[in-house]
């Protein structure tokens, strides 16, 4: 059982009491960046554990992190839905006007060869961020209440981590700034509510990064008794 503010792992260097097993890997943690072995230990809230060799942050549990992350995920869902349906930018010149929402932006590529790019652009600025928010809520909601995680919680969280580099809302905002400068000489541009939603999304993302501690979440999933169901590939038995 794990509520936010309960057991967390900590990592110290090797020489410590034998709460680990070098033969099976129980109670140990390897740094994903340099493979150095560490022993898992309880970590006080607010502490940060770094790899003793390369300095990569390995765990940084924060008070109420799960609840905060759920709240921030809901915030980004609301902002993203708003960002899709409200006009993004409006441009007008000499009586010709054009308001475009995000779908217009993506559909600009919709002719011919560039069609796959439409899907990619839509996915990167809307699809993946919103999917990640859903996955995080799915994984964290039961954990925050100290209940058993939903089915496939481990896989859901791993996918959300895989998607992380591909959700590019903040890059899109900078792209907008560049586009505005290019258009400025040609026509007058008004920023729509969707643009501000994206700007807010950047701050939501920064906040959620500060609370995100993958190690704590993995540990919470494991402690709550979730095991990965194996898809397809049969696994060899333990020696």
């Amino acid at each position: 059982m794990l509520a936010p503010g309960c057991p967390w792992p900590i990592l110290t260097s090797m020489e410590h009491e034998p709460s680990y097993d070098l033969a099976t890997g129980r109670g140990l943690m390897a740094c994903p960046k340099c493979d150095a072995l560490h022993i898992e230990e309880e970590l006080e809230l607010g502490e940060t554990a770094r790899c003793t060799r390369c300095g990569t942050v390995m765990a940084k549990p924060r008070d109420g992190a799960f609840v905060q992350l759920i709240a921030l995920s809901f915030t980004s869902m609301v902002l993203l839905v708003g960002a899709v349906f409200f006009p993004f930018l409006e441009v007008s010149a000499m009586g010709f006007g054009n308001a475009s929402s995000l779908f217009d932006v993506a559909l600009a590529f919709a002719d011919g060869v560039l069609l796959p790019l439409v899907i990619a652009v839509l996915a990167m600025i809307i699809g993946l961020p919103i999917t990640r928010a859903f996955l995080l809520v799915y994984v964290l909601a039961p954990l925050a209440q100290g209940r058993k995680p939903h089915r496939h919680a481990a896989r859901a969280f791993r996918w959300s981590e895989v998607m992380r580099p591909w959700s590019m809302a903040e890059i899109f905002v900078i792209g907008t700034a560049v586009a505005l400068v290019k258009v400025a000489g040609l026509a007058s541009v008004h920023l729509g509510p969707a643009f501000w939603a994206f700007c807010a999304l950047i701050f939501v993302n920064i906040a959620s990064r500060a609370f995100m501690c993958q190690t704590s979440i993995w540990d919470a999933i494991e402690d709550a008794g979730q095991t990965v169901e194996f898809h397809g590939k049969p696994r060899r038995a333990k020696a």
Partner: peptide, 15 residues
Amino acid sequence: IDVFVVAILSALVQL
């Protein structure tokens, strides 16, 4: 960034 700039411009500048 550059891809997004092109996407935004071609959606926006249809005057």
